[in-house]
Design a protein around this nucleic acid. Structure first.
Lengths: 243, 243, 243, 243
DNA sequence: AATGAATGAGGATTCATTCAT
DNA sequence: AATGAATGAATCCTCATTCAT
């Protein structure tokens, strides 16, 4: 695979046909992996079943023994990809303690994936705006599960008093993922670079403080917050300069 | 037209030939309007020249007397649509007084358009990610003009001391339109409803506070969240550009 | 015109329509001249009526007031062009005395035209092999008239005893024009150069001697002929080297 | 097939895919034969894939499983046709003894093919002047192989002393095939008849004499015409190449 | 005579999908 | 389960030609 797909073997690709024999399963997975690469390289329209079949080394018709259609294939590639991401997050999150650290991990992980797996991410982002109900619903669903983790973290922080109770949890999704998508877009097309840890740090920092309950506020909220932000930026600038 | 396209008749569609005879002009406009609808219904790829011609009641070839290509046609549909939006905004804005109110109007107007004209907006959003040079440049241009109004409002507020002088005006694009896009996304596909006035209010509030000069900052630590985020992104962005 | 078309104004373009008013005639000629250029630049298929009309500065429909069709237009361009060539030859030939000199003039003139007017000549050569009866017959006719002059010169030389009586006159056409066409082809496409006077000299020399009656042969036919040929080649080489 | 295509079944049409199953092969050949006919009847531009498919009785898309494009299809038709001609020549030539007789056979064979297979020959001749890189290279290649046989015959005659050693072998192409093309031209379009044996005899005679060693030259001054022409052209050509 | 808007047939090519073997 | 040959619909664009004004 051209892109680094984290933890791709962790999840079980749902078998489409009655016979769930290991051999069939392996073939299904191979197709899925190859399709992932081709979709990432060429986009949905640009990818062709024949190329996927050729790369796997099977006949075109065989793909239709494993998947219903090209759309189904992309759908499963996407589900599988995000299942992998979610699985990795869920495997790592328990070992991370603290609200701030958890959020920091999510941001860094998401932004890094957007860049490392720019190809499939672009397909995801583009097809999300398609006029096709199937794609829209599947992507909406995947997205909900993916961003749901973040919302859960925030929700949990609220119950523990680390975030003020009236914070509109759903906004996290719009603010963070929407902004990240826009910020990352240029870099995803190979134009410009992004310092992932620096941005993740800065965003986490700002967001955590922004969500903090009033009681936890420091005496001079403006100055302290600004200090930390400045420190974060200073770090970013230092890193950027060295590259 | 299936979608409510605000103020579509106000602007003059650029004539293709030197002869700007009224009859030709009318035909050009009819094609533009019909193409708008078809693109909105089916998306760019899904729309076919033959369907547009059929709906107008002319031959396919005739369309090519008025437009250079399918891409040119969508380009002009988009330009014309956003010209209409801009014209409407510019007609109403003078009658609205106050920085807060002007911003509130923009947000409400944009979000409402995203929902009311979801079809053509999705085409716009999708093709903005198409990596076609032509679309990219035309969309960039339209986008710049459209978001320019908001930037001008902010700029004006800066000169009047209502917004702190160091606010990075260019960020308006990422913050406002990026966030609104995400907020509207689900509803644009007919899934779920959105309380436009409420969201517009909330966003305006947050942004106005975030942009307010330090002196006017409230003790609430959450208030500075947005502008700090912006500042962080602004610095990051500046670095990316220099590379 | 991009190509130098010798004596283009000498002939009368046959009027297609009833009214033969001077103004119409002038317009017809302008169209013919412009069409000549466009065909020469783009070939028959590549030329479009609209471009011709645009260059003339008239409407497309107007061309059809003067010509029946695109084929008719090319046909008349070709006829007119070769009429011009023939007229020029016939105007100059009387002033040239001697069989050898006349032939030399023809060769030089033809080869020069092939190169100077490579564009229209290529159209002529290519369309001569078309699957279209109209073009084939018109080109055949033009060709016959054009090469007929050469045959007449040879025929005349026969009656005056300068060429042996049993020389197959028709061969002149195949040998000379066929060979010239092949030799010139590469240069006509801008690949390689040709020393027109040198080739014309050599060909004339060789042909005249080859056609001479046995009685006129020199004592040692091989040596004398070879001498002259060598001399011709020497001249060619001298010229080529200097360029 | 409408035209007599000599020995068309002798060669193996290059398979497009690695699997060279007999059935596929047969289908490929059928398409090739049908395409040959259609191209011969209508020319390259005039032929349509849909007509070829219809005549074969298959879908248009199927043709693209066997050939890359229309150009590829004509290319292979041409290669296959000339492969057939070459195979037939090479099968018969060994049974013919004597330089004069071999040459006579080539001339008669080529001229006869030009007339019998006028359709495909015209396509060949026309596309050779099309300035399409693909056609130019494939035709150049086919031409080289085809004319190579004649050159080999001459070369062999040189080693046996039947042709003078300094005869520029490459000229065979211009002299023989160029002249034959012109000779056959009118008859190829169904206008006029040609006495193939007579012309073949005359040309063979002239060429054999022209190429004969000096010692064997007759006193007739006309006899040396051809080889002197050739010599002149050869020198000129050599100069052109050096530039 | 001139216009020029409109025509509409025409064609190469792609590719997801099917089905007989 | 696998094959892979065959399908055939679907589409953008060009341009010579017409005809109402």
């Amino acid at each position: 695979m051209t892109e680094t797909s984290p933890e791709t073997s962790a999840d079980a690709p749902e078998p489409r046909k009655r016979s769930v024999r290991p051999k069939t399963l392996a073939r299904t997975r191979t197709i899925l992996e190859t399709a992932h690469d081709v979709f990432a390289e060429r986009g949905y329209e640009g990818a062709s079943i024949s190329e996927i079949a050729r790369r796997v080394g099977i006949a075109e018709g065989t793909i239709y023994k494993h998947f219903d259609s090209k759309k189904d294939l992309l759908g499963q590639v996407l589900v599988r990809y995000y299942d992998g991401l979610i699985a990795e997050i869920e495997a790592n999150l328990p070992h991370i303690t603290g609200f701030h650290e958890k959020l920091r991990y999510i941001f860094g992980f998401h932004l890094q994936n957007l860049l490392t797996n720019a190809g499939i991410s672009k397909v995801f982002l583009r097809e999300a705006r398609s006029h096709d109900d199937y794609f829209e619903s599947i992507i909406l669903d995947v997205n909900r599960r993916y961003t749901g983790i973040t919302q859960a973290i925030v929700q949990d922080a609220i119950t523990r008093g680390e975030v003020r109770a009236d914070f509109p949890v759903r906004l996290v999704r719009y603010l963070v993922f929407g902004t990240l998508e826009h910020v990352a877009w240029r870099a995803m097309s190979g134009r410009g670079r992004i310092d992932v840890p620096a941005i993740a740090d800065a965003l986490t920092d700002a967001l955590v403080r922004g969500m903090a309950p009033p009681a936890a506020a420091e005496p001079d909220p403006a100055s302290g917050l600004l200090d930390r932000l400045e420190a974060a930026i200073a770090r970013i600038e230092a890193q950027s300069t060295h590259k």
